[in-house]
Computed example of a mutant assay.
Amino acid sequence: MSTLRSLILPPMATLAVGISLGALGPLLGTADDPVIHAMHVVLSAGWSWAALGFGVGITRNSLAQSAVLAAFSLLAGVVTYYAVKSHQGEVDETSFISKVIFWGLFAVILGSILGVTGKLAKSEGLLSLPFRLIIPLIALFESSMRLRSEATTQGQVVSTTWEVTRGVAVAAVIALIAQAITSWRSRASADRGENVLTR
């Protein structure tokens, strides 16, 4: 029974999270409340979708599971996103099919890569640091790009949301690097202590 549950629950959970992300982004975009609109901006951002694939990878115990389930989750999100957009009248039937195919393929390819990246980020040591930095760096790049190109034309809420996102991304990069260096120094000190004791 537990084996069956372990086979069924991960795909169902990733499906549910992907559908939730895909639905919430466009649904929250119709609200006038600034907080809800900020949530819409965050949930519709590319870095949030990347974080979903990465997060799925972290939760799995094998590279294959990480790749497949992350791709599955992002694909479910893409289909849901455009289904909601179609229901809202923002995407017609022909455009719906082409967008789902294009972004669905992108989700499968990128999702697989991000799933594997998430799994590799779980390993110990400095070698895992580049993998851990992927999502903050994506958020930093996207927020900087959005602030340069479009945020100023979309109002204060959007601009502030991207400013906060950039600030959090910078803080996350610094914290992850500091944590990796501290952990490496701690292990190096422990290894030196063991070497002294064994002499």
Score class of each variant (00 low, 15 high):
Ile58Gln: 01
Gly104Pro: 15
Lys99His: 15
Pro136Cys: 03
Thr117Gln: 10
Met39Phe: 14
Phe106Tyr: 14
Gln154Lys: 10
Val158His: 04
Lys85Leu: 11
Asp92Ile: 08
Phe72Met: 10
Ile36Tyr: 09
Val84Thr: 12
Lys99Leu: 05
Ala50Gly: 09
Val116Lys: 15
Ala38Pro: 03
Ser144Pro: 04
Arg146Tyr: 11
Val68Pro: 07
Val84Asp: 02
Thr59Cys: 02
Phe141Met: 10
Ile113Met: 10
Ser149Met: 09
Val79Asp: 04
Ser159Cys: 10
Ala45His: 02
Ser128Glu: 01
Val108Asp: 02
Trp49Ser: 01
Ala151Tyr: 06
Ala139Val: 10
Lys99Cys: 07
Val56Ile: 11
Ala76Gln: 09
Gly77Glu: 10
Trp162Asn: 11
Thr117Asn: 13
Gly57Cys: 07
Ala76Ile: 14
Glu124His: 12
Val157Lys: 03
Leu63Glu: 03
Pro130His: 14
Val84Met: 04
Thr152Cys: 03
Ser149Cys: 08
Thr117Gly: 03
Gly125Glu: 05
Gly46Ile: 14
Asn61Gly: 09
Tyr82Asn: 04
Gly57Lys: 01
His87Val: 11
Leu105Val: 05
His87Met: 12
Val79Gln: 12
Trp162Phe: 06
Ala71Phe: 08
Gly111Lys: 08
Ala67Leu: 02
Ser112Glu: 13
Gly115Asp: 01
Leu74Gly: 06
Gly111Ile: 08
Trp103Ile: 09
Gly77Trp: 12
Ile109Trp: 11
Ile109Lys: 11
Pro136Arg: 03
Leu105His: 06
Asp92Thr: 15
Ile36Ala: 02
Gln88Gly: 07
Val78Met: 13
Glu124Met: 04
Gly89Ser: 06
Ser123Met: 12
Gln88Leu: 01
Gly111Val: 14
Ala121Trp: 13
Ala45Met: 04
